[in-house]
């Protein structure tokens, strides 16, 4: 499936874009602000003296998959980590400008980071299951945020694992250590863990970069299914993946958003020469 060329238009985009014409005229600002999950306005980000993000202005639409593409070190992951304040742990990280999730100011020091991270889940590049049982991994988030009795908790764990398409493989060994799963299963477990807290937005930081094609396909199918209930933002280095499974794509270069449009536009008739060079594989 990674051999699919860019010239053959990805099937899923056709399916996805056609029934949602609103995505087409997004550039004309036809959507009102309630249809955006995250809005960034002139966001600048620094690590110490190094400016990693320059004047980022983006509106991530609700219940769609938005892909961030661009060469390494262009600020995709940095931006993603500002969306749920994971940058808080990096001492030198600062940001200015405006970044909102609904009516929450994501940059304000007073923002309740704990509640924010419940609403904005994140899946990392490398699967990082806790050294606990499979059940405990998924139950970890709900235990932090909700008061559930035993059966409600196990129902939620089952729901999350089913949603993450890993239930069939693990249902007989929920008490087995999560580290015994294969890489792809571990990553799907991490997705199950992330959706168990009921987030509105799911951030995925190169979730498939360490996975084999079969697991990648499973996770892409998963995103396709999850898009109805979640806003998904995915950072990827894989052009085909971006074109296959995203509705909108942002191309980053040297800390700036060069182009942000529907995935179809970005991959077929990009307005910027740089975008075209990148998606055609001429650099990066």
């Amino acid at each position: 499936m990674t051999t699919k060329t860019l010239e053959t238009k990805p099937k899923r985009i056709m399916n996805q874009v056609a029934p949602t014409p609103s995505a087409e005229n997004d550039s004309t600002d036809a959507l009102d602000s309630t249809q955006y999950a995250i809005e960034a306005e002139k966001l600048n980000g620094w690590y110490g003296d190094f400016q990693a993000l320059h004047e980022i202005s983006l509106k991530i639409p609700k219940n769609q998959v938005t892909a961030f593409i661009g060469p390494s070190g262009c600020g995709k992951s940095t931006l993603l980590r500002w969306f749920n304040r994971m940058n808080d742990t990096i001492f030198s990280a600062r940001a200015s400008g405006d970044l909102r999730l609904g009516d929450i100011d994501l940059l304000a020091p007073s923002t309740d980071v704990v509640d924010l991270r419940r609403r904005v889940g994140i899946v990392f590049q490398k699967a990082n299951p806790f050294p606990k049982s499979i059940f405990e991994n998924v139950a970890f988030g709900p235990r932090l945020h909700m008061q559930l009795n035993k059966s409600e908790l196990s129902d939620l764990v089952e729901w999350s694992l089913r949603k993450a398409a890993v239930w069939k493989e693990v249902k007989d060994r929920l008490n087995a250590p999560a580290l015994g799963l294969s890489g792809g299963q571990q990553q799907r477990l991490c997705i199950a863990r992330a959706i168990a807290t009921g987030p509105e937005v799911l951030l995925m930081d190169e979730p498939c970069s360490a996975l084999d094609p079969a697991s990648t396909l499973a996770i892409e199918d998963l995103m396709d299914e999850l898009r109805d209930q979640y806003t998904i933002v995915i950072v990827t280095h894989n052009m085909q993946q971006a074109s296959r499974c995203s509705d909108k794509t942002a191309f980053f270069f040297e800390g700036r958003v060069v182009e942000f449009d529907t995935t179809e536009t970005i991959f077929t008739k990009p307005s910027s020469q740089k975008t075209e060079d990148y998606v055609r594989g001429r650099f990066g």
């Binding site: 419940r118 889940g121 994140i122 990392f124 990082n128 299951p129 970890f140 988030g141 992330a194 807290t197």
Partner: peptide, 14 residues
């Protein structure tokens, strides 16, 4: 590994 800490933090753990 710090990825474990990130994982827990990302789920909203204090």
């Amino acid at each position: 590994p710090s990825s474990l800490r990130d994982g827990a933090r990302g789920l909203g753990a204090t």
